[in-house]
Design a protein around this nucleic acid. Sequence first.
DNA 1: TGATTATATATAAGATTCTTATGTATATTT
DNA 2: AAATATACATAAGAATCTTATATATAATCA
Lengths: 111, 111
Amino acid sequence: MNKKVLYKGCLEPILLKLLHENGRMYGYEITRKVKELTVGELNITEGALYPLLHRLEADGVLEAEMENIGNRVRKYYSLTQNGRKEKVKAVSELENFAKTLQLLLNPKPSF
Amino acid sequence: MNKKVLYKGCLEPILLKLLHENGRMYGYEITRKVKELTVGELNITEGALYPLLHRLEADGVLEAEMENIGNRVRKYYSLTQNGRKEKVKAVSELENFAKTLQLLLNPKPSF
DNA sequence: TGATTATATATAAGATTCTTATGTATATTT
DNA sequence: AAATATACATAAGAATCTTATATATAATCA
């Protein structure tokens, strides 16, 4: 498991990107998908995920629909129209961040 | 300027890496160097930097020496022996983080 | 010459985003 | 029957920043 503090702020863009790619997902599914994509490196905690999902829904970035699976309830989330704009912005910020990190980790030699 | 929250936790490894590469640096110099390396993207604030330098000195990761430049005082920091170990660990964590970010931003296609 | 910007360090209050812990409940595997 | 997996939810507290403020010298600009 990676040093967790480094991931601070990454959850939102990651979430929006996943929802963009998969159409709709529910919370638990998101935690599994992130773990799979990162080969076990990043485990999203419920204490971080659910409050974020609720906040993004309240902000009109996400919309939710409940679905009954047997006796259990799943809450599927998808991007709203505004959410798709937010996704572009958030992912672009994360990409920019990743590039800047590379500049620091592997500086271009100055001739 | 990048979304600042994403950089949370990155300052310490960046700092240790810079001190490793440059031998000794003072606070203001560090802020200029980071700005230069990141082409203006990352501006370290004093409110983040100085308390971190003090904490790392108190923890025996850094050692400081004052130097008089004209009528001004500079505080040069360098890695202690333990600091060099910490540097290896911290930078390796940051590199691992950067790789994991890449997995999320550019997932390997699953065949 | 006076004002602004750059150099240089320092600290305190508050914001944000997480972690950890806890709670509830059903389904599946051992 | 017990443990693990699935599924959602929230509250308290930790960590690391940002923003603002303070102090002081040096250099540049108008």
